[in-house]
Nucleic acid binder design. Sequence first.
DNA 1: CCACGGATTGGCT
DNA 2: GCCAATCCGTGGA
Length: 201
Amino acid sequence: MDIKQKLTQKFYTRDVHIVAKELLGKLFVRRIGREIISGIIVEVEAYDGSIDEASHSFRGKTKRNEVMFNEGGPLYVYFTYGMHFCANVVTGKEDESKAVLIRALQPVGGIDLMIKNRYNKKEITRKEFVNLTNGPAKLCKAFKIERAKNGTALTGNEIFILNSPKLNPSKIASATRIGIKKSVDLPWRYYIKDNLFVSKK
DNA sequence: CCACGGATTGGCT
DNA sequence: GCCAATCCGTGGA
């Protein structure tokens, strides 16, 4: 079957909510030179520029959000709070401006390098391990994703996502999104139930 | 465990 | 000038 295959553009050009839910359980992979870092996607949020006031693209295209207006496939990386980067998977057709924020990963491969990237040390506590990738800016730090990665094609070999069987819907929960002040009631956050690395129930 | 506030840049009103 | 799709340390229960 198509286990362990890289997701293709066709996967990303579909509806943002379908893509968001199907991304759960898939392996997010980052190659840095010869090293590989990877983690299972366990929490995401959908943003829809056409009807969603919380979306960066709700008020139209700007220099900052222009990647969101591409056809599904690239990574949209934004800078916020003066110090953090967060990563989104752009979905849908050209000019739709819909994207999926990656909120949390369960570390799988390259964990030593993740720890170095995030804490700049070797030994960490159990609490620090749980905090390695359980938030959108935390995982970007661990995976070395910053401004220069904005627009990176997920069909390339630097940042990509590997396919895996679709999760049973009973394992997926939906809830309101975190950290926004507009469109607060939309239940567009999706996460894997009972996973240790989900940022918030 | 929870609540609160400071950090710190840059986008856009 | 305002404030953000966040994180972390502090202080109290």
